[in-house]
Nucleic acid binder design. Sequence first.
DNA 1: TATTGTTATACTCTATAACTATA
DNA 2: TATAGTTATAGAGTATAACAATA
Lengths: 155, 155
Amino acid sequence: MAELSYSSVGWTAARLARHVEVALAPLDLSPAQYRMLVQIARGTDASSSLAQKLAVSAPSVTAVVDVLVQRGAVERAHSAEDRRRIALALTDDGRSLLGAAEEALRERIQAIADELADEGLVSDAIGALSLWGEALDRSRARRHGERVNTAGPPP
Amino acid sequence: MAELSYSSVGWTAARLARHVEVALAPLDLSPAQYRMLVQIARGTDASSSLAQKLAVSAPSVTAVVDVLVQRGAVERAHSAEDRRRIALALTDDGRSLLGAAEEALRERIQAIADELADEGLVSDAIGALSLWGEALDRSRARRHGERVNTAGPPP
DNA sequence: TATTGTTATACTCTATAACTATA
DNA sequence: TATAGTTATAGAGTATAACAATA
């Protein structure tokens, strides 16, 4: 007999997390590097705010960016106005690496969803990820005191 | 204006992965340790099959179990029949640690979902995780040639 | 003084390759 | 020989504490 289907929300999230690692591994990319690429691609300012957005320490940002710079995916440049700040930008290689990562993740996640019984459930599952994306955006906005685009101004 | 809402499925999954790490950190537990506890709690046989189920190498299993044993959460015992095999079991401390981990994850994930606009969407999001749990079960079953409990025998 | 980012250090997870013990 | 598990080794991510450079 197969195992009893045990599925706490935590277990499901933790399993998905491992699938992310495995999907990115062939690109020689860690989840931390992938998240960093995404944030830099979004034009995020500088190291300090990256640490906050990625929920990691400042030295972690340095370490992850170091590897990406060494690989030629990211470039550092001292800001002219405030020489303490270091602007980060993707190189062309970085952009194509990010594109490959997105595709690898999309494929793996789609393949998992495709195991569901019918196409309706598959769309439900994929659609729910957008819902989670929105929830994550709002959660981050609350933590950082930012504003969410779909919400009106606070009272 | 807030950032454009960018939400590839990969990005969403990778962000959730980081939330799992952060939720477990106060318990001094890594996602890898959590996944191992869950598998051992389910009575999984031995090291080799754990590696397959967790999609990691055999030495990784050794390393993760080492830490859990040192912490008193897991016990190793040589099998009597085949002395190469090592049976793994949770201690009482391990069980309560796992319980605390489940609760920490549940709380964090629920808090994220609660950011959604209305209760209907919140239930949708939480419900969808069960769907993903099922998809993950089926996906694993296919990879390992096992049988899924809801499916009949193959033709 | 305060802020930005890095260096120093230590620990865990990961993998591959080589090894030991058992079958 | 083959299998189960560990040891050896190396690289990456993480954190805290201490430091450098700039404001």
